[in-house]
């Protein structure tokens, strides 16, 4: 999603990737299978895995979910640390400004 591979392009072969990353083939295979499970790539018999057409709606869903998860974690941390909601929102605003 960082835009390195466009939709329709093929991912590196599982063995080629394993060779480059110096890991076992089964690891790259499971990784690709996970990507397929998430709907990001599709497996084609004999050719490999290619990047799915971007469904912006589905993508947005996914990232929304991720963001909620991370925010929940932030809230839990705040609770444990005894940090008030006010402070939490302040910090969030600061970070957003810094990111711009």
């Amino acid at each position: 999603m960082a835009g390195k591979l466009k939709q329709g392009e093929y991912l590196p072969s599982i063995r080629g990737l394993a060779k480059e990353l110096r890991i076992s083939v089964i690891t790259t295979m499971k990784a690709y299978e996970e990507l397929e499970r998430q709907g990001l790539v599709t497996a084609v018999q004999g050719k490999g895995y290619y990047v799915n057409a971007q469904d912006s709606e589905m993508l947005r869903e996914q990232h929304l979910r991720k963001m909620e998860e991370h925010l929940s974690n932030a809230i839990s941390a705040a609770r444990i640390g005894g940090i008030s909601n006010q402070e939490l929102i302040q910090i969030l605003e600061m970070l957003l400004e810094a990111d711009n």
């Binding site: 072969s13 063995r15 083939v25």
Partner: peptide, 14 residues
């Protein structure tokens, strides 16, 4: 050796 094995598997493409 591990690299040689990976290259061998990659060459064979399955």
């Amino acid at each position: 050796l591990c690299t040689m094995i990976r290259e061998y598997l990659d060459e064979g493409n399955g």
